[in-house]
């Protein structure tokens, strides 16, 4: 028979919180956090708006056409300006040796074009 004194002590702890109350509190907290996430997103969007306007301004003055995200090759640096026939890959379904190629699929227009060739 197990009856260590510490167990007996805990046995007398009669004023404990119900697990369901704890769970409901956590639930409320989770919902609040989700709300806070959307709130933060809205706030941050507002705060970033001038920055985006600024970047759009740079795009306008420099006549840019692309984001400087993938600088590894010309068709990833300027995907929207890439050659019609060599852009991204020779075939939309082929695997790429540039990791970017696995993220950046060919532009929709190219896919449509290749659709006819498939």
């Amino acid at each position: 028979m197990i009856s260590s004194p510490s167990l007996k002590m805990s046995g007398k702890a009669r004023l404990s919180v119900r697990k369901s109350s704890l769970c409901l509190v956590l639930f409320g907290a989770a919902v609040l956090l989700l709300g806070a996430m959307f709130f933060h997103a809205a706030y941050q969007r507002q705060a970033d708006a001038p920055l985006i306007v600024h970047i759009a301004g740079v795009v306008k003055t420099l006549d840019l056409t692309d984001l400087c995200l993938f600088t590894e090759a010309r068709y990833t640096r300027h995907p929207s300006q890439a050659d019609l026939y060599s852009a991204f890959q020779d075939h939309p379904a082929s695997l790429e040796h540039f990791p970017t190629g696995s993220i950046a699929g060919p532009p929709a227009a190219l896919r449509r074009l290749h659709g006819k060739l498939d």
Binding site: M1, I2, G11
Partner: peptide, 16 residues
């Protein structure tokens, strides 16, 4: 069983 309230049942003796 007053002092066994919070014990798990598998800790109990047969009589308990």
């Amino acid at each position: 069983l007053g002092d066994r309230t919070a014990a798990r049942v598998e800790w109990l003796s047969g009589g308990e």
